[in-house]
Design a protein around this nucleic acid. Structure first.
Lengths: 347, 347
DNA sequence: CGCATTATGGCAAACGATTGCCAAACGTAA
DNA sequence: TTACGTTTGGCAATCGTTTGCCATAATGCG
């Protein structure tokens, strides 16, 4: 019984060992494994067999070094969006991962929390050749001391935010238009007094969603007073608080709005709860419309009507764009994936 | 005016260019940057200045190759747990990332979906020196053809599941005990007939949670008939369906259970909704207790009582264990982080 | 059979950072 | 001034893979 080199030894076997086992040179092993046409079929199987027996896996660092690519993509996540009921980020990740993993890419996660040195950390990752590209889910590509992720020579794609004005191809949803459509729907059903439950001031989404509502209002000849916007109450991660604060504001208003359009499902659900607690009928007295499409909204009574973002598909599209950029192809500056209005009962 | 090498050139600057700029040898640059004591202070600043000016970032692949470590940790996620209302996975990730990033580690995500070749992919990552260790959130460490992640010579830590019997240090919560405590609480309040809304058959959590309830039942001398267990209805990701199916079962039972303990908040919320739709009072007619601690549960009416898992802390602890293992220290086979009962109204 | 052509495998030089070892330079003391 | 010790910087090997180039073997054709 021959003594096989144990597959589980301390050190991982390298190409040289495979070469010896197969009785060929390392270069032949390399070619046999990656460039099948270049080597005789019999040799190739012999090499493959030796590699299998030894449990050989090519060393990624060495390959990266030699090739100048890492087959790794960095996903830049804003810690702030990560909690609450909506599953935008996890779904987007699933979409991204699906396509990238299929194409042999690894996924590096950066910036789950927003710590001090994190931006520097991200820039370093990009500059060190650790990653071949990045998908940014935060509103601005990280930068430090004038050096920004986007001009580091790496392909970068944004999603959720449109930062094509900074030269970064972006995958977004039709926030403006869908919000406009939702408002028009409500107007058609007789609503005349609206409350927009706003998220953090100055955030990308806010501008577009609010503008969408205003457009609908204007288009139907309603006065400006038909729309009130809540004061920003802090970060998205405080989604519930946004909703609670909005409820206070709504309850104090006269005339009272009959429809509330919210920046997130978190805000909408909190608002919904508070209104119901106050004995207000939804949707007959006040209609509530969320934004995101959180599945759990369907369990509320009444079930939350909302605007469903195609998070998974946006992720897939962003990944596809990045792959094209890596292949040297031109990509459109903006890709729009449509959201849909999901009427479930609260509006 | 001298012509500075533009920081944003096509190729990233390497150590040799820094050395030239500073008028020293590469080895000196290396030592100046990583081993400050070994080189004259004046030289050190000169090198640091040159590096800064060129925008130098050490090449990670080269360093990995030379050092034999990648400063990268792989997180193995089960795609199945990723959706629904509970935020266990995102919170766990935040905990893990917090500690690892602070220690200079990168985080590689694997297996968001469960595709065909994924397990092989994971094994390859581990074998290729791409990662220095792994944290596993799925029930079993991936394996293919007899080669398992856990015996690949890499430090591996599990969380959420106890697989210490396979030699993998595990971070878990006291599912058995807390479920027992919750049941005792309900017994003390007069409940005598229980329904356990079960998740997928044979899953780790199921065994322990169910056993916890049984222990409480037995300890208080209640008959076995005091506890009914729903039939498994499929994967966790079908959380809502589990709850709906359980509702049907509960409604058909006589005598009707007065308390339902659920395997997840998703199931609990779906059950809650269905019961309320049927006009059943919660908690007076049927008390409902969830499991996970999803924040959104607080918005239901009544607010969902639940068992809150310390997901973030479990993540932090798992990361800490892994760091200790990387440092060659011994770690305990099992680490328990306590869950807490969160009484909010539905039980 | 001889020559030209192609298929195949091997040698060795990269890729960029780290580090053992040695040499130069410096300071100090005799 | 010489001898010695100490500090500091440089040379060069190394990590494991890929690949241009060359040598050889195999094949085809006249």
């Amino acid at each position: 019984m021959k003594k096989p080199t144990p597959p589980v030894s301390g050190a991982a076997p390298n190409m040289k060992q495979v070469a010896e086992a197969a009785g060929v040179a390392v270069s032949t092993v390399s070619r046999a494994l990656t460039n099948p046409g270049r080597v005789n079929e019999k040799t190739r199987t012999r090499v493959a067999e030796a590699a299998r027996k030894l449990g050989y896996t090519p060393n990624a660092a060495a390959r990266s070094l030699r090739m100048g690519k890492s087959k790794t993509i960095m996903i830049v996540l804003p810690g702030a969006l990560y909690y609450g009921a909506s599953q935008i980020i996890p779904l987007a990740l699933a979409g991204i991962d699906g396509l990238l993993a299929r194409n042999g890419f690894k996924i590096l996660i950066a910036n789950l929390d927003r710590e001090e040195a994190t931006e520097q950390h991200i820039i370093n990752l990009a500059g060190s050749g650790t990653v071949d590209g990045a998908i940014v889910l935060s509103s601005a590509p990280p930068s430090v001391g004038g050096r920004s992720l986007k001009d580091l020579g790496l392909p970068v794609v944004a999603m959720l935010h449109d930062i094509s004005d900074q030269g970064v191809p972006s995958v977004i949803t039709n926030e403006h238009q869908i919000m406009c459509a939702a408002t028009e729907l409500l107007i058609a059903e007789g609503h005349r007094q609206f409350l927009y439950v706003a998220g953090p001031d100055g955030v990308y989404h806010e501008v577009h969603r609010y503008a969408g509502i205003r457009e609908a209002i204007a288009r139907h000849g309603l006065p400006e007073s038909a729309l009130t916007r809540t004061e920003g109450v802090g970060a998205y991660q405080e989604g519930f608080n946004i909703g609670f604060a909005a409820a206070e504001q709504l309850l104090a208003m006269a005339p009272r709005p009959t429809a509330a359009l919210c920046c997130s499902d978190d805000a909408a659900l909190a608002l919904l709860k508070r209104l119901l607690d106050e004995g207000i009928e939804v949707p007959s007295e006040v209609a509530v419309m969320g934004f995101d499409g959180a599945a759990v909204g369907a369990l509320f009574r009444p079930a939350l009507s909302t605007i469903e973002q195609p998070a998974t598909e946006m992720g897939t599209r962003a990944a596809a764009l990045l792959l094209e950029m890596l292949a040297g192809e031109e990509v459109p500056p903006v890709t729009v994936v449509d959201s849909t209005i999901l009427r479930r009962g609260s509006a």
